[in-house]
């Protein structure tokens, strides 16, 4: 499922609002309304149902408010700081619940993979879901961010706290791995 648009807050106004919220958490409300859709979407793509997504989105914003006094306003988008907290809430959820990690895949995303010059191969849901089962969580995350949620490499780098170049190189390596596995699974099917 494609990621929701990056927050539309004016950076200067957002910065002012963050500083206000650092002094008084109630001032966070406008930021909550701006960032909630994106956070909910991010979580919903990673859990099995909407109710769980609501719960984890709330937990995310609770942690955001608790950590806000430590937040340093820099040039980096505030939304990615929140997404990183959502990621840690999700990780904790899967650690403690022992549930199977859920990943949303749309046919549109599969088409995007197929059309990507790096893949340039037919991608069927049945085959790719088998291949993705063999990936580690970090590798899967790169594919999810890049192809299932259409994040740019710059955005992936901000979410994963790595350099843009590193995000590209790592994603490229996972693509190569997937291509090999897809090829192998084709041969085995034959």
């Amino acid at each position: 499922m494609k990621s929701l648009p990056i927050n539309k807050a004016d950076p200067q106004r957002e910065k002012e609002q963050i500083l206000k919220a650092q002094a008084n958490p109630a001032e966070f409300e406008p930021l909550y309304h701006i960032h909630y859709p994106r956070v909910l979407g991010f979580i919903y793509n990673r859990v099995s149902d909407l109710e769980t997504a609501y719960d984890l989105a709330s937990q995310t914003f609770v942690q955001v408010l608790q950590a806000l006094p430590k937040y340093v306003v820099t040039g980096a988008p505030f939304s990615f700081w929140i997404i990183r907290i959502a990621k840690s809430v999700l990780a904790k959820y899967y650690q403690t619940s022992g549930k199977q990690i859920s990943v949303a895949i749309t046919d549109e995303a599969l088409q995007k993979m197929e059309d990507d010059p790096e893949f340039s191969t037919e991608i069927r849901f049945e085959a790719i879901s088998l291949v993705l089962q063999t990936l580690g969580i970090n590798d899967l995350e790169l594919i999810q961010l890049r192809f299932f949620e259409s994040y740019s490499f710059k955005e992936i780098a901000l979410i994963l706290k790595i350099s843009e170049n590193n995000a590209k190189v790592k994603t490229f390596r996972v693509i190569e791995k997937i291509k090999k596995l897809l090829k192998k699974s084709d041969h085995e099917t034959l």
Partner: peptide, 23 residues
Amino acid sequence: KPYNFRRNPKPLTPNDIENGKNF
């Protein structure tokens, strides 16, 4: 299996988003 792949889950609607908010 480590992952559960959900194919074409129902997209979030504006109502879904509003229903989840509780500042």
